[in-house]
């Protein structure tokens, strides 16, 4: 959580889209921006990029208000995927409330996915977060491409971890909202446990998700 200011009645959350280089993190945010109505979200801000690659981060803010009047702002970030930008990833990951790991389904990218996931685990630990308890969703992107790892293989590998898996083709907008909703739902559950959003602020999970995903 970035901040919670009870006097101001405002809570600022952080969700991070993590994953190897060119796996489609920015595309996910672009699609969210496209698919969701302007009510409840801000504009997508992309910091400087090089050759279409994120070198700092992208930011898409969301807003919602609980019946109690509590204003919740959710800042969704992408990180740069390239190995060399590890320090930036660490900085963006600080105080994250949830992580969507965007994997590249192409068979050739399997190694990069694994390395990036290990990097996520390491960096979470470095910023004081635990991969076992942080809300997490894994998206296997680029399902539209040939020569991708089979869903059966993905299922066999990841089911034992208990982490929810979402297939997606972000360029086409498929699976993008679903990924976001799973992450938002899991984040809500953890927040509710800690901050009693439903009991103290009258904000149910359904309400939370509905406000976040008003389609265009």
């Amino acid at each position: 959580m970035i901040e919670f200011n009870p006097a101001d009645n405002k809570m600022v959350l952080k969700l991070v889209y993590y994953g190897p280089a060119l796996s489609g993190k920015t595309t996910n945010l672009l699609q969210l921006h496209e698919l969701l109505a302007p009510e409840g979200r801000g504009d997508l801000m992309m910091l400087d990029t090089r050759d279409d690659r994120t070198i700092y981060f992208d930011l898409l803010p969301f807003f919602l208000t609980a019946p109690s009047g509590l204003r919740i702002k959710i800042k969704v970030y992408t990180v740069p995927g390239q190995v060399r930008h590890d320090s930036t990833r660490k900085a963006v990951l600080q105080r994250a409330d949830g992580v969507a790991f965007i994997a590249d389904s192409q068979l050739s990218e399997t190694g990069n996915n694994v390395a990036s996931f290990e990097n996520l685990e390491k960096n979470l630990a470095l910023v004081g977060l635990d991969i076992a308890s942080i809300p997490l969703v894994i998206q296997f992107n680029k399902r539209d491409l040939p020569r991708v790892v089979s869903e059966a293989d993905i299922d066999r590998t990841w089911r034992p971890t208990g982490i929810p898996i979402q297939m997606a083709s972000a360029v086409a907008g498929a699976g993008v909202l679903e990924t976001f909703s799973i992450l938002a739902a899991r984040t809500f559950m953890q927040l509710d446990e800690r901050w009693r959003l439903e009991r103290d602020h009258g904000l149910s999970q359904e309400d939370f998700l509905r406000q976040l995903s008003v389609r265009n």
Binding site: M45, T88, A91
Partner: peptide, 24 residues
Amino acid sequence: MNANLKRMLTTEIHTQVVNQSYEE
């Protein structure tokens, strides 16, 4: 405002990264 915000965010993360690299 938008231009300034971007510049600030860039500067901040750059500083953060530099600090971190330096510490490392």
